[in-house]
């Protein structure tokens, strides 16, 4: 069966790669936002006397560009393909297949993420490095926990959006939920502002939520904030959220299927 997921992911990758103009303009937008966020954060650090809460201007600029590089990969802004299929009723076709719906959409999600990691991930960081002084993982093996962390962040991103897409079974129009989720992710993940710059009580809340697993934690791993067992514990925290949210998705899927089968949706 695992062959099926690979085949789906491969095609999803290819499909994402067929929108070249969208990719090019996306890279442009991501880079512009990187410049914007980096400039603001550098200004903040400079105003605070060169560093703020132990983070130098270089740390913060790096934070901006690295996170800008993988927000598309983790799907921070979501995807409404499944919601659309539910709204039109086409999801019935999916139920006629002897394949797991959650794994199916996960394969689609990861295929696209694979493409976005390459096409929308690397260029903004390289273009950022042209104008700003950026850091690279040091020692070199720190790339490994960082990349693992991005994979887990992508899983958390998928698990959240899978749930919100499924809500269409009950709401018919889930755009409100999607927008709310995007706002929560933007704020609590560290996208708008690294959560280390929040008041400490708010930072504690943000760290207790799953959204930190999407941007804050991978970026901190990149910046080398953790070492040794701390790295393992950060990855375990992300994996915990991923598993928990996937299980919630499973339960929601079961309820949604039962609803369709019993009530006729």
């Amino acid at each position: 069966m695992s062959r099926l997921w690979w085949e789906i992911a491969r095609r999803s990758f290819r499909r994402a790669s067929s929108y070249r103009l969208a990719t090019a303009s996306g890279v442009f937008v991501n880079t512009v936002f990187g410049y914007l966020r980096a400039s603001i954060l550098i200004f903040v650090a400079t105003a605070a006397g060169g560093s703020i809460r132990g983070q130098s201007a270089t740390d913060l600029a790096t934070f901006a560009f690295v996170s800008q590089g993988f927000i598309m990969t983790i799907g921070a802004f979501g995807d409404h393909e499944l919601a659309e299929r539910i709204r039109t009723g086409d999801v019935v076709i999916d139920l006629y297949r002897p394949a797991d719906l959650q794994l199916w959409w996960a394969a689609t999600w990861f295929g696209r993420s694979g493409f976005l990691a390459l096409a929308r991930g690397i260029p903004p960081v390289v273009l950022g490095a042209l104008a700003f002084d950026l850091e690279w993982p040091d020692p070199l093996w720190h790339w490994l926990p960082f990349l693992a962390s991005v994979v887990l962040a992508t899983t958390v991103g998928f698990a959240l959006r899978f749930c919100s897409n499924l809500l269409t079974f009950w709401l018919l129009d889930n755009r409100g939920v999607e927008q709310l989720l995007t706002v929560l992710i933007s704020f609590f993940s560290g996208l708008v502002l690294p959560i280390t710059l929040f008041p400490s009580w708010l930072e504690r809340i943000a760290r207790a939520l799953p959204f930190a697993s999407m941007i804050q934690l991978p970026t901190e791993l990149y910046l080398g904030r953790y070492d040794g067992m701390e790295i393992v514990s950060v990855l375990a925290q992300q994996a915990g959220w991923a598993v928990a949210l996937l299980l919630v998705g499973r339960a929601v899927l079961r309820a949604a299927t039962a609803r369709v089968v019993i009530q006729g949706g």
Binding site: G89, D90, V92, I93, Y96, R97, P98
Partner: peptide, 15 residues
């Protein structure tokens, strides 16, 4: 199990 043994075509939907 049934989905493996039946085929379905909906004129108005696409698989």
């Amino acid at each position: 199990r049934l989905t493996r043994r039946i085929g379905v075509v909906f004129g108005q939907r696409s698989q």
